[in-house]
Design a protein around this nucleic acid. Structure first.
Lengths: 212, 212
DNA sequence: CCAAGAACTGAAGCGTGGTTCACTTCTTCG
DNA sequence: CGAAGAAGTGAACCACGCTTCAGTTCTTGG
């Protein structure tokens, strides 16, 4: 025998792998899934297309890792904001704002993470990602309901609805013009107000309709 | 000259076209965009694949029409519910419930209409569709704010957020288990409560954070 | 019935983009 | 240095599904 992988070569290998992930991330953040073909990723990473398959079994596997990393980063920020020590309402407001500001800062990436069409393997990562967001909100909500700071409600449902509301308002196709114009702070403020009303508001009596 | 299209043949042509649209709709409602290949649509409609192109310039054109029809149907129902005569709060509740119940009844179709990846031409139809939903809610909200029934708020933003919240809770990947278990009425009730709180609730004072 | 022309057919064409693989280059160690 | 074997290369391959089109069938008016 003659050649055995050594620390040096493994480090180089790891660095190449990293370059591929970074390149894929950059391409997704710029032009979404569409722009991030395997060939383009390889070109940007400075390797041959075939080399991508030395590090990842498939395109989906590569993208799953990119999603996992990017989403972890985002979720950590929101979870931290929601999980502090102050009043629950303040923490929820902070979490909404962190979510919204970060999404607005990197809108293309946010869309890719939240809504852009991806193949099933990557979709599975997204599910984890969105569930983590939901859980961050749900945990704070449960705490608030438990301590009496918030009225009784289905915390999981409220949390999911909040995630959907933010996503729609920020990156959805019906995003109000404010999301595209410069007034991002107004949008964030409005969204915060919406979310706080939705968790603290009293449900008014209303007619229950049976018609569908 | 000899052959001129007559009423009879035009009627047949229209019927064939209709069968194609219906077939595409059925396939989408069953298995989404994926299952609705041109070949499958043609097979189900009882025509050759090539014949589809006698009626539609492209697959996207066909699907745009299918989306337009299906979405119009849904939006009409929501708009009617939101646009009645009673108190705004009741109408909003009714609109949410109509939206939710219909989506739950045909979940696969709802997903296709609301969230499933489609190509740009169809996406344009979806934009119209979601905007119409938003507008139905926004109109009622503006009325409520105008009459003093609801507290002041950015009605467009609230409406978009409500659409997002419903979509996420019903068909999104973070949809709570209730959406999959049998207890759909509880889900609808919870969602209604969320939406009403979000439009009627008082925004509590909270610390405005500057950190992103 | 026949000619003209429209509708229909379905197999072949084609573009796209992920994946493979025979070959080259590089690294290690006796 | 030279053999062994891993990493890297990129052109060719291939699957998939929309689209086309030459040939066929159907409908109409003379």
């Amino acid at each position: 025998m003659a050649y055995r992988p050594t620390e040096r070569t493994e480090a180089r290998r790891a660095r190449t792998r990293e370059r591929i992930v970074v390149a894929a991330h950059a391409l997704i953040a710029h032009g979404g899934y569409r722009e991030a073909s395997v060939a383009a990723v390889a070109r940007r990473a400075g390797v041959a297309t075939g080399s991508v398959y030395r590090h990842f079994g498939s395109k989906a596997e590569l993208f799953a890792e990119v999603f996992r990393r990017a989403s972890q980063h985002e979720v950590d920020a929101v979870t931290a904001a929601a999980g502090g020590q102050g009043p629950v309402v303040d923490r929820l407001a902070a979490a909404v704002q962190v979510f919204a500001r970060r999404a607005l800062r990197g809108r293309r990436l946010a869309w890719a993470l939240i809504a852009e069409p991806v193949d099933p393997a990557v979709e599975a990562e997204r599910l984890v990602f969105r569930a983590a967001y939901r859980d961050a909100f749900a945990a704070a909500l449960r705490e608030g309901v438990g301590s009496g700071e918030l009225p009784g409600q289905d915390c999981e449902l409220t949390a999911a609805a909040i995630v959907g509301a933010i996503a729609e308002a920020l990156v959805g196709p019906t995003s109000p013009t404010a999301a595209r114009s410069g007034d991002e702070e107004a949008l964030v403020a409005g969204l915060t107000a919406f979310c706080l009303r939705s968790v603290t508001g009293e449900e008014p009596r209303h007619v229950r309709l049976d018609a569908a």
